[in-house]
Design a protein around this nucleic acid. Structure first.
Length: 407
RNA sequence: GGGGGAAUUCCCGAGUGGCCAAAGGGGACAGACUGUAAAUCUGCUAGCUAUGCUUUCGGUGGUUCGAAUCCACCUUCCCCCA
Protein backbone atom coordinates (compact mmCIF):
# COMPACT_ATOMS: atom_id res chain seq x y z
CA UNK A 1 0.00 0.00 0.00
CA UNK A 2 1.29 3.41 -0.84
CA UNK A 3 2.00 5.82 1.94
CA UNK A 4 -0.82 8.22 1.25
CA UNK A 5 -3.43 5.48 1.31
CA UNK A 6 -1.93 4.08 4.45
CA UNK A 7 -2.27 7.47 6.15
CA UNK A 8 -5.87 7.62 5.07
CA UNK A 9 -6.51 4.08 6.27
CA UNK A 10 -5.04 4.94 9.63
CA UNK A 11 -7.36 7.89 9.90
CA UNK A 12 -4.50 10.34 10.19
CA UNK A 13 -5.50 12.79 7.50
CA UNK A 14 -8.08 15.39 8.37
CA UNK A 15 -7.95 17.96 5.58
CA UNK A 16 -5.84 18.49 2.48
CA UNK A 17 -5.62 21.38 0.06
CA UNK A 18 -5.24 19.34 -3.13
CA UNK A 19 -5.65 15.64 -2.72
CA UNK A 20 -4.41 14.59 -6.12
CA UNK A 21 -1.21 16.62 -6.06
CA UNK A 22 -0.41 15.73 -2.47
CA UNK A 23 -0.93 12.04 -3.07
CA UNK A 24 1.44 12.21 -6.02
CA UNK A 25 4.09 14.14 -4.10
CA UNK A 26 4.25 11.99 -0.99
CA UNK A 27 3.90 8.66 -2.76
CA UNK A 28 6.86 9.50 -4.93
CA UNK A 29 8.98 10.98 -2.19
CA UNK A 30 8.97 14.40 -3.78
CA UNK A 31 7.71 16.31 -0.80
CA UNK A 32 9.82 18.48 1.43
CA UNK A 33 7.46 19.10 4.26
CA UNK A 34 7.56 20.91 7.54
CA UNK A 35 5.75 20.68 10.81
CA UNK A 36 5.98 23.46 13.34
CA UNK A 37 6.34 22.85 17.06
CA UNK A 38 5.70 25.69 19.45
CA UNK A 39 7.92 25.44 22.50
CA UNK A 40 5.21 26.24 25.02
CA UNK A 41 6.45 23.71 27.59
CA UNK A 42 9.71 21.99 28.48
CA UNK A 43 8.62 18.63 27.12
CA UNK A 44 6.84 17.24 24.10
CA UNK A 45 3.47 15.60 24.60
CA UNK A 46 1.31 13.07 22.83
CA UNK A 47 0.12 15.50 20.19
CA UNK A 48 3.69 16.20 19.19
CA UNK A 49 4.38 12.50 19.21
CA UNK A 50 1.70 11.95 16.59
CA UNK A 51 3.22 14.59 14.40
CA UNK A 52 6.67 13.09 14.80
CA UNK A 53 5.35 9.67 13.88
CA UNK A 54 3.79 11.12 10.79
CA UNK A 55 7.13 12.63 9.91
CA UNK A 56 8.77 9.31 10.35
CA UNK A 57 6.23 7.55 8.15
CA UNK A 58 6.74 10.11 5.41
CA UNK A 59 10.47 10.04 5.83
CA UNK A 60 10.45 6.28 5.38
CA UNK A 61 8.57 6.85 2.14
CA UNK A 62 11.42 9.02 0.89
CA UNK A 63 10.16 12.48 1.72
CA UNK A 64 12.26 15.08 3.40
CA UNK A 65 11.12 16.38 6.77
CA UNK A 66 11.82 19.81 8.14
CA UNK A 67 11.23 20.26 11.84
CA UNK A 68 10.48 23.84 12.63
CA UNK A 69 10.81 24.92 16.20
CA UNK A 70 8.76 27.99 16.91
CA UNK A 71 11.34 29.87 18.90
CA UNK A 72 10.19 33.05 17.18
CA UNK A 73 6.44 32.45 17.08
CA UNK A 74 6.57 31.63 20.78
CA UNK A 75 7.11 35.36 21.30
CA UNK A 76 3.65 35.87 19.88
CA UNK A 77 1.57 32.89 21.01
CA UNK A 78 -0.94 30.94 18.98
CA UNK A 79 -4.52 31.80 19.86
CA UNK A 80 -6.02 28.91 17.85
CA UNK A 81 -8.74 27.14 19.74
CA UNK A 82 -7.92 28.83 22.98
CA UNK A 83 -10.42 30.63 25.11
CA UNK A 84 -7.95 32.99 26.71
CA UNK A 85 -4.62 34.58 26.03
CA UNK A 86 -1.44 32.68 26.58
CA UNK A 87 0.79 34.19 29.16
CA UNK A 88 3.82 35.76 27.55
CA UNK A 89 6.96 33.72 27.84
CA UNK A 90 10.33 35.17 28.63
CA UNK A 91 13.11 34.68 26.08
CA UNK A 92 14.93 32.49 28.63
CA UNK A 93 11.97 30.13 28.97
CA UNK A 94 11.58 29.94 25.22
CA UNK A 95 15.23 29.09 24.76
CA UNK A 96 15.08 26.47 27.49
CA UNK A 97 12.01 24.86 25.96
CA UNK A 98 13.57 24.82 22.51
CA UNK A 99 16.57 22.98 23.90
CA UNK A 100 14.35 20.41 25.60
CA UNK A 101 12.38 19.86 22.41
CA UNK A 102 15.52 19.33 20.39
CA UNK A 103 16.83 16.68 22.72
CA UNK A 104 13.59 14.73 22.72
CA UNK A 105 13.08 14.90 19.00
CA UNK A 106 16.46 13.43 18.27
CA UNK A 107 15.17 10.19 19.72
CA UNK A 108 12.51 9.89 17.04
CA UNK A 109 13.77 11.53 13.91
CA UNK A 110 17.13 11.15 12.30
CA UNK A 111 18.73 14.45 11.51
CA UNK A 112 21.61 15.13 9.17
CA UNK A 113 22.65 15.43 5.56
CA UNK A 114 19.90 14.14 3.31
CA UNK A 115 17.86 13.28 6.35
CA UNK A 116 15.68 15.54 8.39
CA UNK A 117 16.68 19.09 9.16
CA UNK A 118 15.76 21.27 12.04
CA UNK A 119 15.25 25.00 11.86
CA UNK A 120 14.17 27.63 14.34
CA UNK A 121 11.99 30.44 13.12
CA UNK A 122 13.60 32.77 15.65
CA UNK A 123 16.47 32.90 13.14
CA UNK A 124 14.43 34.87 10.66
CA UNK A 125 11.39 36.19 12.50
CA UNK A 126 13.29 38.09 15.15
CA UNK A 127 15.18 40.02 12.51
CA UNK A 128 12.12 41.28 10.68
CA UNK A 129 11.53 44.97 10.39
CA UNK A 130 7.97 45.98 11.08
CA UNK A 131 7.42 48.35 8.17
CA UNK A 132 9.29 46.15 5.72
CA UNK A 133 7.21 43.18 6.73
CA UNK A 134 3.97 45.07 6.49
CA UNK A 135 4.81 46.22 3.00
CA UNK A 136 6.04 42.82 1.96
CA UNK A 137 3.22 40.58 3.11
CA UNK A 138 0.53 42.90 4.46
CA UNK A 139 -1.23 43.34 1.12
CA UNK A 140 -1.61 39.57 0.80
CA UNK A 141 -3.80 39.19 3.84
CA UNK A 142 -7.43 40.12 4.01
CA UNK A 143 -8.48 41.10 7.48
CA UNK A 144 -12.04 40.18 6.55
CA UNK A 145 -10.91 36.66 5.80
CA UNK A 146 -8.76 36.39 8.84
CA UNK A 147 -11.62 37.39 11.09
CA UNK A 148 -13.72 34.65 9.61
CA UNK A 149 -11.11 32.01 10.36
CA UNK A 150 -12.29 29.17 12.52
CA UNK A 151 -9.30 29.42 14.81
CA UNK A 152 -10.30 32.86 16.06
CA UNK A 153 -13.95 32.04 16.52
CA UNK A 154 -13.81 31.36 20.24
CA UNK A 155 -11.76 34.44 20.72
CA UNK A 156 -14.18 36.74 18.97
CA UNK A 157 -16.36 36.43 22.05
CA UNK A 158 -13.72 36.62 24.72
CA UNK A 159 -11.38 39.06 23.11
CA UNK A 160 -8.35 38.68 20.89
CA UNK A 161 -5.32 40.89 21.21
CA UNK A 162 -3.50 42.28 18.19
CA UNK A 163 -0.41 40.40 19.28
CA UNK A 164 -2.09 37.04 18.91
CA UNK A 165 -3.96 38.07 15.79
CA UNK A 166 -0.56 38.29 14.13
CA UNK A 167 0.27 34.70 14.81
CA UNK A 168 -1.29 33.63 11.54
CA UNK A 169 0.90 36.06 9.65
CA UNK A 170 4.03 34.80 11.36
CA UNK A 171 3.19 31.19 10.57
CA UNK A 172 2.38 32.07 6.98
CA UNK A 173 5.66 33.88 6.72
CA UNK A 174 7.47 30.76 7.97
CA UNK A 175 6.05 28.68 5.16
CA UNK A 176 6.93 31.38 2.65
CA UNK A 177 10.47 31.55 4.02
CA UNK A 178 10.93 27.77 4.03
CA UNK A 179 9.57 27.51 0.51
CA UNK A 180 12.17 29.93 -0.75
CA UNK A 181 15.14 28.77 1.28
CA UNK A 182 14.61 25.04 1.65
CA UNK A 183 12.30 24.19 -1.22
CA UNK A 184 9.67 23.23 1.28
CA UNK A 185 6.47 22.61 -0.66
CA UNK A 186 4.19 21.19 1.98
CA UNK A 187 3.11 21.83 5.51
CA UNK A 188 1.59 19.47 8.04
CA UNK A 189 0.06 20.30 11.32
CA UNK A 190 -2.75 19.68 13.72
CA UNK A 191 -6.22 20.24 12.40
CA UNK A 192 -6.51 23.33 14.59
CA UNK A 193 -3.76 24.85 12.44
CA UNK A 194 -5.74 24.70 9.23
CA UNK A 195 -6.38 28.41 8.85
CA UNK A 196 -2.81 29.29 9.73
CA UNK A 197 -1.55 26.85 7.15
CA UNK A 198 -3.86 28.11 4.45
CA UNK A 199 -2.48 31.57 5.16
CA UNK A 200 0.91 30.23 4.12
CA UNK A 201 -0.16 28.57 0.89
CA UNK A 202 -2.06 31.72 0.00
CA UNK A 203 0.96 33.91 0.68
CA UNK A 204 3.21 31.74 -1.46
CA UNK A 205 0.70 31.80 -4.27
CA UNK A 206 0.33 35.56 -4.17
CA UNK A 207 3.97 36.44 -3.72
CA UNK A 208 5.63 33.79 -5.85
CA UNK A 209 2.79 32.53 -7.98
CA UNK A 210 3.70 29.00 -6.90
CA UNK A 211 1.66 26.18 -5.47
CA UNK A 212 2.35 24.87 -2.02
CA UNK A 213 0.24 22.37 -0.18
CA UNK A 214 -1.11 21.83 3.26
CA UNK A 215 -2.42 18.82 5.07
CA UNK A 216 -3.68 18.48 8.60
CA UNK A 217 -3.52 15.57 10.97
CA UNK A 218 -6.68 14.44 12.68
CA UNK A 219 -6.76 15.57 16.26
CA UNK A 220 -6.76 12.56 18.52
CA UNK A 221 -10.12 12.82 20.24
CA UNK A 222 -11.75 10.30 22.50
CA UNK A 223 -15.31 9.10 22.04
CA UNK A 224 -16.54 12.03 24.08
CA UNK A 225 -14.88 14.48 21.75
CA UNK A 226 -12.18 15.55 24.16
CA UNK A 227 -8.52 15.77 23.29
CA UNK A 228 -6.63 12.66 24.28
CA UNK A 229 -3.33 12.77 26.05
CA UNK A 230 -4.61 14.95 28.81
CA UNK A 231 -5.12 13.98 32.41
CA UNK A 232 -6.53 15.92 35.31
CA UNK A 233 -3.05 16.97 36.29
CA UNK A 234 -2.12 18.10 32.77
CA UNK A 235 -0.71 16.56 29.66
CA UNK A 236 0.77 13.13 29.23
CA UNK A 237 4.40 14.07 28.66
CA UNK A 238 7.09 12.23 26.80
CA UNK A 239 9.72 13.28 29.31
CA UNK A 240 10.06 10.38 31.78
CA UNK A 241 10.68 12.84 34.60
CA UNK A 242 7.32 14.48 34.03
CA UNK A 243 5.30 11.38 33.19
CA UNK A 244 6.95 8.15 34.28
CA UNK A 245 7.00 5.26 31.80
CA UNK A 246 4.64 3.40 34.14
CA UNK A 247 2.13 6.25 34.21
CA UNK A 248 2.48 6.57 30.47
CA UNK A 249 1.80 2.89 30.05
CA UNK A 250 -1.21 3.03 32.37
CA UNK A 251 -2.68 6.00 30.54
CA UNK A 252 -2.97 3.96 27.37
CA UNK A 253 -3.87 0.80 29.23
CA UNK A 254 -6.91 2.64 30.58
CA UNK A 255 -8.35 4.20 27.44
CA UNK A 256 -12.03 3.56 26.82
CA UNK A 257 -13.19 0.62 24.72
CA UNK A 258 -14.36 2.89 21.96
CA UNK A 259 -10.96 4.49 21.58
CA UNK A 260 -8.50 1.60 21.59
CA UNK A 261 -8.51 0.68 17.95
CA UNK A 262 -8.45 4.27 16.82
CA UNK A 263 -5.37 4.87 18.95
CA UNK A 264 -3.63 1.76 17.72
CA UNK A 265 -4.31 2.71 14.13
CA UNK A 266 -3.18 6.29 14.50
CA UNK A 267 -0.28 5.98 16.88
CA UNK A 268 1.44 2.65 16.43
CA UNK A 269 3.44 1.27 13.54
CA UNK A 270 1.75 -2.13 13.64
CA UNK A 271 0.77 -3.36 10.18
CA UNK A 272 -2.79 -2.58 9.14
CA UNK A 273 -3.69 -6.24 8.58
CA UNK A 274 -2.90 -7.02 12.19
CA UNK A 275 -4.95 -4.04 13.34
CA UNK A 276 -7.92 -5.06 11.24
CA UNK A 277 -7.75 -8.45 12.94
CA UNK A 278 -7.88 -6.82 16.37
CA UNK A 279 -10.81 -4.75 15.25
CA UNK A 280 -12.93 -7.89 15.54
CA UNK A 281 -12.17 -8.31 19.22
CA UNK A 282 -14.98 -7.54 21.58
CA UNK A 283 -15.76 -7.27 25.27
CA UNK A 284 -13.03 -8.20 27.69
CA UNK A 285 -10.84 -9.36 24.81
CA UNK A 286 -10.34 -5.67 24.15
CA UNK A 287 -8.21 -5.58 27.25
CA UNK A 288 -5.54 -7.36 25.27
CA UNK A 289 -5.69 -4.70 22.62
CA UNK A 290 -5.28 -2.05 25.28
CA UNK A 291 -2.19 -3.73 26.56
CA UNK A 292 -0.75 -3.95 23.08
CA UNK A 293 -1.42 -0.27 22.58
CA UNK A 294 0.19 0.62 25.89
CA UNK A 295 3.20 -1.58 25.25
CA UNK A 296 3.78 -0.37 21.70
CA UNK A 297 3.63 3.28 22.63
CA UNK A 298 5.73 2.98 25.76
CA UNK A 299 8.26 1.10 23.72
CA UNK A 300 8.34 3.77 21.00
CA UNK A 301 8.68 6.61 23.48
CA UNK A 302 10.77 5.14 26.28
CA UNK A 303 12.39 2.10 24.68
CA UNK A 304 11.72 -1.59 24.95
CA UNK A 305 13.33 -2.06 28.32
CA UNK A 306 11.15 0.53 30.02
CA UNK A 307 8.08 -0.85 28.26
CA UNK A 308 8.81 -4.30 29.65
CA UNK A 309 9.26 -2.91 33.13
CA UNK A 310 6.02 -0.99 32.94
CA UNK A 311 4.15 -4.03 31.72
CA UNK A 312 5.58 -6.20 34.48
CA UNK A 313 4.64 -3.63 37.09
CA UNK A 314 1.16 -3.42 35.66
CA UNK A 315 0.72 -7.17 35.76
CA UNK A 316 2.01 -7.33 39.28
CA UNK A 317 -0.60 -4.88 40.47
CA UNK A 318 -3.66 -5.90 38.56
CA UNK A 319 -3.17 -9.54 37.75
CA UNK A 320 -2.10 -10.40 41.27
CA UNK A 321 1.53 -11.25 40.58
CA UNK A 322 3.91 -10.71 43.46
CA UNK A 323 6.50 -8.60 41.71
CA UNK A 324 6.63 -5.21 43.38
CA UNK A 325 10.16 -4.27 42.39
CA UNK A 326 9.04 -1.39 40.18
CA UNK A 327 6.56 0.03 42.65
CA UNK A 328 7.17 3.57 43.84
CA UNK A 329 8.71 3.33 47.28
CA UNK A 330 9.22 5.58 50.27
CA UNK A 331 11.76 4.78 52.97
CA UNK A 332 11.23 5.80 56.56
CA UNK A 333 13.66 6.54 59.32
CA UNK A 334 12.91 6.04 62.98
CA UNK A 335 12.71 9.76 63.69
CA UNK A 336 9.61 9.92 61.47
CA UNK A 337 7.87 7.59 63.93
CA UNK A 338 6.38 8.40 67.31
CA UNK A 339 6.62 5.65 69.92
CA UNK A 340 7.55 3.15 67.23
CA UNK A 341 4.54 3.82 65.02
CA UNK A 342 3.09 6.25 62.48
CA UNK A 343 -0.55 7.13 61.80
CA UNK A 344 -1.98 6.13 58.41
CA UNK A 345 -2.72 9.72 57.52
CA UNK A 346 0.87 10.82 58.13
CA UNK A 347 2.10 7.77 56.32
CA UNK A 348 0.07 8.62 53.24
CA UNK A 349 1.29 12.19 53.31
CA UNK A 350 4.89 11.06 53.62
CA UNK A 351 4.47 8.74 50.64
CA UNK A 352 3.06 11.55 48.55
CA UNK A 353 -0.24 9.74 48.10
CA UNK A 354 -2.14 12.78 49.37
CA UNK A 355 -1.42 16.45 49.31
CA UNK A 356 -3.27 17.24 52.54
CA UNK A 357 -4.35 15.42 55.66
CA UNK A 358 -7.96 16.19 54.97
CA UNK A 359 -7.67 14.38 51.68
CA UNK A 360 -6.11 11.39 53.41
CA UNK A 361 -8.83 11.41 56.05
CA UNK A 362 -11.54 11.50 53.40
CA UNK A 363 -10.02 8.60 51.51
CA UNK A 364 -9.80 6.44 54.60
CA UNK A 365 -13.30 7.31 55.72
CA UNK A 366 -14.67 6.39 52.31
CA UNK A 367 -12.87 3.07 52.41
CA UNK A 368 -10.44 3.93 49.66
CA UNK A 369 -7.23 2.91 51.38
CA UNK A 370 -5.84 -0.48 52.20
CA UNK A 371 -2.58 -1.72 53.64
CA UNK A 372 -1.30 -5.14 52.59
CA UNK A 373 -4.69 -5.97 51.15
CA UNK A 374 -6.66 -5.03 54.23
CA UNK A 375 -8.96 -2.06 54.25
CA UNK A 376 -7.96 0.64 56.69
CA UNK A 377 -10.97 0.86 58.95
CA UNK A 378 -10.30 4.07 60.80
CA UNK A 379 -8.25 7.22 60.55
CA UNK A 380 -6.65 6.34 63.90
CA UNK A 381 -4.95 3.21 62.61
CA UNK A 382 -1.22 3.19 63.25
CA UNK A 383 1.48 1.38 61.36
CA UNK A 384 4.20 -0.01 63.59
CA UNK A 385 7.93 -0.07 63.00
CA UNK A 386 7.81 -3.87 62.80
CA UNK A 387 5.34 -3.70 59.95
CA UNK A 388 7.50 -1.19 58.14
CA UNK A 389 10.57 -3.35 58.61
CA UNK A 390 8.89 -6.04 56.54
CA UNK A 391 7.73 -3.36 54.08
CA UNK A 392 4.07 -2.71 53.47
CA UNK A 393 2.03 -2.11 50.36
CA UNK A 394 -0.42 0.77 50.51
CA UNK A 395 -3.19 0.91 47.99
CA UNK A 396 -5.09 4.10 47.29
CA UNK A 397 -8.24 3.71 45.29
CA UNK A 398 -8.10 1.06 42.62
CA UNK A 399 -5.01 1.91 40.74
CA UNK A 400 -2.45 3.61 42.91
CA UNK A 401 0.04 1.50 44.83
CA UNK A 402 2.94 2.51 47.00
CA UNK A 403 5.49 0.62 49.04
CA UNK A 404 6.73 1.84 52.41
CA UNK A 405 9.58 0.41 54.46
CA UNK A 406 12.21 1.22 57.06
CA UNK A 407 15.57 2.35 55.87
C1' G B 1 -11.13 59.77 24.21
C1' G B 2 -16.55 59.14 26.28
C1' G B 3 -20.27 55.83 28.48
C1' G B 4 -21.83 51.07 30.54
C1' G B 5 -20.67 46.27 32.72
C1' A B 6 -17.67 42.25 34.89
C1' A B 7 -13.86 39.69 38.23
C1' U B 8 -16.57 34.27 43.48
C1' U B 9 -13.47 27.92 45.35
C1' C B 10 -10.27 23.20 39.88
C1' C B 11 -13.99 25.21 35.79
C1' C B 12 -18.96 27.36 34.76
C1' G B 13 -22.04 29.98 37.86
C1' A B 14 -25.64 31.68 42.25
C1' G B 15 -24.97 34.83 46.27
C1' U B 16 -25.96 42.35 47.30
C1' G B 17 -24.48 43.24 55.65
C1' G B 18 -24.77 38.23 60.12
C1' C B 19 -28.41 31.94 58.87
C1' C B 20 -21.46 31.82 54.09
C1' A B 21 -16.19 27.56 53.72
C1' A B 22 -20.29 30.12 50.21
C1' A B 23 -26.49 27.17 46.21
C1' G B 24 -26.59 24.48 41.50
C1' G B 25 -23.96 22.14 37.48
C1' G B 26 -19.38 20.15 35.37
C1' G B 27 -14.84 17.91 36.38
C1' A B 28 -11.76 15.27 39.85
C1' C B 29 -11.51 11.70 43.73
C1' A B 30 -13.60 7.46 46.62
C1' G B 31 -17.44 3.34 47.30
C1' A B 32 -20.91 -0.36 44.82
C1' C B 33 -21.23 -2.89 40.04
C1' U B 34 -17.30 -4.45 36.35
C1' G B 35 -12.90 -6.19 32.32
C1' U B 36 -7.43 -1.70 35.08
C1' A B 37 -13.39 0.06 29.92
C1' A B 38 -18.13 2.60 29.47
C1' A B 39 -22.88 3.49 31.66
C1' U B 40 -25.46 3.83 36.35
C1' C B 41 -26.24 4.71 41.62
C1' U B 42 -23.98 6.68 46.35
C1' G B 43 -20.57 9.62 48.87
C1' C B 44 -17.11 13.57 48.60
C1' U B 45 -14.55 18.18 46.88
C1' A B 46 -10.14 25.05 51.49
C1' G B 47 -6.76 23.78 55.58
C1' C B 48 -5.67 22.36 60.63
C1' U B 49 -3.10 20.34 66.53
C1' A B 50 -10.91 19.50 64.62
C1' U B 51 -18.27 19.63 68.24
C1' G B 52 -13.47 24.40 67.73
C1' C B 53 -10.02 27.43 65.04
C1' U B 54 -7.39 29.63 60.65
C1' U B 55 -7.18 31.27 55.44
C1' U B 56 -10.51 32.13 50.92
C1' C B 57 -14.90 35.62 46.80
C1' G B 58 -9.25 40.44 41.38
C1' G B 59 -5.63 44.02 44.66
C1' U B 60 -4.98 47.84 48.52
C1' G B 61 -7.12 50.76 52.11
C1' G B 62 -11.72 52.26 54.70
C1' U B 63 -16.97 52.13 57.02
C1' U B 64 -19.22 48.54 60.63
C1' C B 65 -19.86 44.94 66.67
C1' G B 66 -19.75 42.04 61.90
C1' A B 67 -17.96 42.58 54.68
C1' A B 68 -17.93 38.02 49.02
C1' U B 69 -21.87 41.78 49.83
C1' C B 70 -21.22 49.00 51.41
C1' C B 71 -17.35 53.19 50.16
C1' A B 72 -12.52 54.95 47.85
C1' C B 73 -8.48 54.04 44.85
C1' C B 74 -5.88 50.54 41.69
C1' U B 75 -5.43 46.24 38.15
C1' U B 76 -7.37 43.20 34.31
C1' C B 77 -11.21 42.01 30.91
C1' C B 78 -15.87 42.65 28.05
C1' C B 79 -19.70 45.68 25.49
C1' C B 80 -21.45 50.33 23.16
C1' C B 81 -20.05 55.18 20.97
C1' A B 82 -15.75 57.82 18.59
Amino acid sequence: MEIYDELVARGLIAQVTNEKEIRDLVNNGKATFYIGFDPTADSLHVGHFMALCLMKRLQMAGNKPVVLIGGGTAYVGDPSGRTDMRSMMTPETIQHNCDCFKKQMERFIEFGEDKAIMVNNADWLLKLNYIDLLREVGPCFSVNNMLRAECYKQRMEKGLSFLEFNYMIMQSYDFYHLYQNYGCNMQFGGNDQWSNMLGGTELIRRKLDKDAYAMTITLLLNSEGKKMGKTASGAVWLDPNKTSPFEFFQYWRNVGDDDVLKCIRMLTFLPLEQIDEMDKWEGSKLNEAKEILAYELTSLVHGEEEANKARTASHALFAGGGDDSNMPTTEFTSDQLTDGAIGVLDLMMACGLCKTKSEARRLVQQGGVSVDGEKVASIDVKITEDQLKNSIKIRKGKKVYHKALMK
